[in-house]
Design a protein around this nucleic acid. Structure first.
Lengths: 99, 99
DNA sequence: TCGTAAGTTCGATAAGTATCGAACATTCGA
DNA sequence: TCGAATGTTCGATACTTATCGAACTTACGA
């Protein structure tokens, strides 16, 4: 598959991260990734079609919240935990801790 | 002036708060409120017309980030610090600490 | 190599949002 | 009571976003 673009740490902006997290579907994805550690897009569908999920993953990727790597035909996604924690200490923890 | 609606603490939703904070203008307002403690809308204009700022204050109010009270002809705004800290511990701190 | 699976991209649509000027309402002071 | 100041509301516009089906690409296994 084509290479997926990721911002490097220095390009990650707070407002974009907040916006990425402000959607219920994407927040659910982030919660699951935090719990599962790593997952394919298909595994995290929220009952939505592939094209919708692909869109949400792209928003998360573009914001720097998620890193995606190819694994055969699948895409494995992980939270960019360490980088986000370094850039915005406590932010992800606070968001994930919220009931 | 007409009474301004505020959600009570139980109605405040994380995604709405994150969305409210995901705009540069509003984030700037929140930063200033955190620093100043209390301020009128006019004092926080970011070079934008009143109608634009009024819109942003409304988004912040509706999300539960800000509380507005009338003080004569002016509106005084404060962060809903305690309630937000109780609902989403560490969130506001993390957002405000970000460089 | 043929089919299946996994995602992306495209195109269309509907809904939401930011922006601003102008008009309006409210408060207070001269 | 008249005017100035403070915000809100309205209306219009442009932009962004969420949503989905369909077509496409890539990878892998039978």
């Amino acid at each position: 598959m084509r290479a997926l673009r990721h911002p490097n740490a220095g390009e990650i902006e707070l407002t974009r991260v907040l916006h990425a997290l402000s959607d219920p579907v994407r927040l659910d994805v982030v919660r699951q990734l935090d719990h599962e550690g790593e997952a394919t897009c298909a595994a995290l569908d929220c009952g939505r079609p592939k094209s919708s999920m692909s869109h949400h993953f792209r928003v998360l990727r573009d914001a720097g919240v998620v890193r995606t790597r190819s694994d055969g035909a699948a895409h494995m996604n992980v939270l960019r935990r360490e980088e986000l924690d370094r850039l915005f200490p406590g932010l992800l923890d606070a968001v994930l801790a919220a009931r």
